[in-house]
Design a protein around this nucleic acid. Sequence first.
RNA 1: GCUCGAGUGGUGGAAUUGGUAGACACGUUGGACUUAAAAUCCAAUGGACAUUAGUCCGUACGGGUUCAAGUCCCGUCUCGAGUACCA
Length: 1009
Amino acid sequence: MHYDFRKIEKDWQDFWAKNETFKAENNSDKPKYYVLDMFPYPSGAGLHVGHPLGYIASDIYARYKRHKGFNVLHPQGYDSFGLPAEQYAIQTGQHPAITTEANIKTYRRQLDQLGFSFDWSREVRTSDPQYYKWTQWIFIQLFNSWYNKTSDKAEAIDSLVAIFEAEGNVNVQAVCDEDIAQFSAADWKAFSAKEKQEILLKYRLTYLAESEVNWCPALGTVLANDEIVNGVSERGGHPVVRKKMTQWSMRITAYAQRLLDGLNTVDWPQPLKDSQTNWIGRSEGAEVEFALKGSEHKIAVFTTRPDTIFGVSFMTLAPEHELVTKITTPEQKAEVEAYIEATAKRSERERMADVKTISGVFTGAYAEHPFTKEPIPVWIGDYVLAGYGTGAVMSVPCGDQRDYDFAKHFNIPIPNIFEGVDISEEAFADKATTVIANSDFLNGLGYKEATSKAIAELEKLGVGTGKVNYRLRDAVFSRQRYWGEPFPVYYVDGMPQMIAAEYLPIKLPEVDKYLPTETGEPPLGNAAVWAWDTEKNEVVANDKIDNKTVFPLELNTMPGWAGSSQYFNRYMDPHNENEIFSKEAIDYWQDVDLYIGGSEHATGHLLYSRFWQKFMFDLGLVPKDEFAKKLINQGMITGTSAFVYKVAYEVSTIVDGGYDEKEISDFQSKVISDNPVFVSKNVRDKIVSCDKAEFKNLTESVKQVTNRIGEKLTEKFPKTQVEIRLWTGRSFDMPLHADVSFVNASDELDVEAFKNWREEYKNAQFITEEDGTFKVSREVEKMSKSKYNVVNPDAICEEYGADSLRLYEMFLGPLEQSKPWNTAGITGVHSFLKKLWRLYHSGPEGAFEVSEAEPSKDSYKTLHKTIKKVEEDIENFSFNTSVSTFMIAVNELSSQKCNSRAVLEPMAILVSPYAPHIAEELWSKLGHEGSIATVAFPKFEEKYLVESSKEYPVSFNGKMRFKLELPLDLSKDEIEAAVMAHEKTQQQLQGRTPKKVIVVPGKIVNIVG
RNA sequence: GCUCGAGUGGUGGAAUUGGUAGACACGUUGGACUUAAAAUCCAAUGGACAUUAGUCCGUACGGGUUCAAGUCCCGUCUCGAGUACCA
C-alpha cells in the first residue's frame, strides 16, 4: 500500500465538507477559542506559496486547540471590495462583481485543496449587501455619536443636544472641530434647523467637512495617509497633491490616547506596537499664545520645549496658515504672496525630496514675547506644516536644529539660553543635560523643572497651557470610487441625512461607466437610479428628484478599510439579519484569541479596527475594547529567482557593400536577438574573474553561432563582410530571469524547456559546465510575476500533496521571519511523510499492520519526548522545530522497528494539526470511526523520560575533550573523582594539577588548569 | 536622520535560565539495489593541518565579564522593515 496522497487528501477534504467537521457552535460547554486570519483580497492572480503561510500556522493552532478540548471558531472570508476589480472594470466594462466572484471561486478552490479547517458556513464578503448593510449601520451609529471627554467615551448625539438646550456649548468637554463659536442655550434654541445640523456636524464622530486631502489625479480619488508611499500612491505610484474637498471624516483623534493606552493590554509584536505608537505620535508640551504688536490677532503655537521660551528669536507660520494674509504688512505683501504661490505649486513629493533647501519670507509683523515683551519677527516657512499642531512654531534656534538652520540662513539672532553649551556650530537639543540660563525665572533649572515652571507662569498670565498633541489626523472616509460601500446618506438642502437602519442595505447602483463623470463627480454620478424617496423609503430614479420628498444620494463610497474594521465580530453571528451580531454570540466568543496576518496592516486596518472596536465598546455592543488578544505577523516568503547570463556580442560591418545602412543594421540586430548565447554560471564566474583561458574557450564556443550569423548575412547581403566581437569587461553579459520551474534542485536549467519558453530563445546556444549541465545563478527577491519566481501551490499539491506543502512551509523557518522559498527542499518533508506512512504499513508488501504488543522502553521515550516538544513548540508558535521533532521521532521509531498501536495512535494525533489528511487516513485505518479532529491530545508522562545516567561532556579550560557516561545520582564529589580517575583526564593534564574542577551535576564537567 | 529587527556551514535553519555549536532537512560526494531511470536504503560532509592518534581555527568585526559566551556588557560594520521637516 503506497502513500497515495492525492486520493487521501481528496477523500478527507470531501469528508470534512460533507460532515461540516469544523463547524463551530455558538454555545458549548467547552471553553471557546477564536483563531482568525486576516481575510484576503481575492486578486485575479490567485494564491502563490507565500500567501498561505499564515493560514497554515493558524490552522495548526486551531486544530491543536480542538485536540485540547476547545470549541474553536476559525472562519474565513473575503475583503472583496477593492481597486483591482474596479480598474479591470474600467478597462473592460466587466462588472467588478463578476470578476470578484470568479476570483473568489479560484481562491476557494486553492484554500480547500490545502486542507484548512475553516468553518465555511460563516464566510463573509465585504462586497455582499447582506454584509455591508452592517458596515453602513456602523457608519450611522458613528454619525449619531459624539465624544464626551468628561466620561471619556462616545455617547449618543441626543445627549449633546440635551446639553445644548440646557446650557449651550460653553461647558461641554467634547472632541470636536476647532472653529466652533460659543453659544448659549438661548442661542441654540434660536438657531435654524440647518444651523443646528451644521453645528452638530462639528461634533459627530463621522462628519462632513472641507478638509485638505491627498488627491491622486491619476486614480481620480482621495487616498489615506497609509495609502501613500514616498509621496506617491501605493498602488500605481501616481503623484499625489494636496487639495481641499468636502469629505466624510472619522474622528479617530478622539481615541488617540485610548488607542495608545490599549497597546499595553494586548500581546502584539513590539514592532507593530511601535509603529502604531509613532503613527499616533503623542507629544507633551504647551500651547502658547503670542500677541501681535499692533493687531488684535494672536498666534497660537504648540511647543514641546516651553522651557526654552526665552530663547525665542522669531516665529514661523506655515505658508497656509490663515493669519498670514491678515498680518502681512503692505511692504512685505508681494514677497509673501509670491512665496505662498510657489509653495502651493510644489507637490508634496517635491517638498519631501527637497528637505535641505531652506526657504521662507518675513511677514513684516512682530509678535510680543509673553514675558520679556520684546518684539519677535514673524516669518513664514514651508518647514512648518499646516496640519500639525497649530501650524505655527515659536522658533528657538539654539535648541532646535531646523530653527537654527533657518536663523543662520536669514541672519536672525541666535540667543543662547543654555548653561555652558557652545552653540556656534549647531543647536543643542539634549534634554537630559539641559541647564537653562539667561531666562529670568528659569535660570539654573533642568529641562523638567523648567518646563513645568514655564507652563505654570504662562497659565498665570493666561497665555498658555500644558497640552498633549497628537500627530494622528482624523481619517478621511470618502473615496471617489465605484467598487466600495455606498453611504446610507442623502442630502436635504446640502445637509447630510441618514437613512433609517430598517431600510438598509443601500445597494450599489448600476452604472454604465466606472469612471468619474464628465463634470468630475465620482462614478456613482453615472447612476440613473440613485435618489432617495423619503416617502417610499427606497432608491428611485434621479429624474424624480424634487428636493421635497426625493433627494440626491451621496456619490462617494467608503474606503477599503471600512469593510475590514468589524468583520471579526460579524463572523460570530454572520447570518443575523436583525442585528450586527446577537448578544449571546458576542458574549460567548468575546474577542479574537489569536490573529495572524501581515505587518503591512500595522497603521491601516489594525488601527482603524481598534478604533471601531472601542467605539462599539462605548456603545455597549461588545464586551472588550481590544478585539484581538494576541497577534502574530507572519514573515514574507520571498522567491529564489534564477538568472541565466546572456552573452553580449556585437556585429560590425567591415565592408558594407553599398546596401541601405538601416536595412543591414535592422537585420543584424534581428539576427543577434534570434541567436542568443547563454553561458553557465561557473563558466561565467571564471570569465568575470578575468580567467583568460575561459574567455578564450568562450570565444571558441561562440564561433559556431557567429559563423551562422555571418552566413545569414552573406546570404542576404552577399557583398557584405562582418566581424563579430564579444564584449569584454563588466558588460560582457546580461543577467536575465529564467522561470524557476525550469530549474532543478542542483540549479541546473532544463535547456529544452527554456528554449520553448519564448520564441526568441528557440535558437539559443548554451555554453555549459564541463559536465555538460547548464547552471543558473540564484538570488532572493520578492516573489513576483515579473521576476518569474512565483511558485503556485496548485502544482506543489499535485506533485507532493497538501500535507507536504503544509509541513514544508512550516519547516522553512520561524513564522515571523521572512525567508526564501526553494521548492527543491520539499522532498525532505515529503519523504518524511512516506516514512511515517511506512511505520503503519509494516505488513507484507506494505500492507497496513500495527501490533497490540507493549512498545519498547525506547519507543515510549521517543513518543513522550515528542509529545513534550511538540506541545511546547505549538504553544510558542515555533512550528519549524516541531517538524524537525517529527522527523527525529519517525527516524527513531523506524530504526526501533516500532509498530505498536500504543505508540502509533498518539503519533497520528500529534501529526494531525500539521498534516491532517494523512493523520485522518491513518486514524481510520487504526479502526476509528469519524474524524481525528477532536480526539484528545496525547498526554505527556515524565516517567518515560527519566534517565539513570548521563553522558557528561568533560571540558578542559572550556573545550570539550571527551564524554563520560556516569550515573545521575552521583554527588558532585563522586563525579569529580570519577572524572579525575579517568585515563583521558590524566592524558589531557599531562601531569599538571588542575587549579579548579567545576561540576554541574546533570550538565557538564570543566577542568581548569 | 530616527525607531525596531537581524547577522551561525554551499543552502534553509537548530541550540531552555550562559554549559557538548551546526539538531533536522536540502545540496554535494561515494556506495547498495536496477539493463537503465525514478524511488528507496547506507556512509561521509564547518575550515585548515595530520597516515592514524589528534591538533588548531571557527556563530559579522573589535574589546570585556566568566571556570565556561552564538547567548550577557561596551563599541564598530552590514543587511532588512517602519517612519520622515511632528515644533
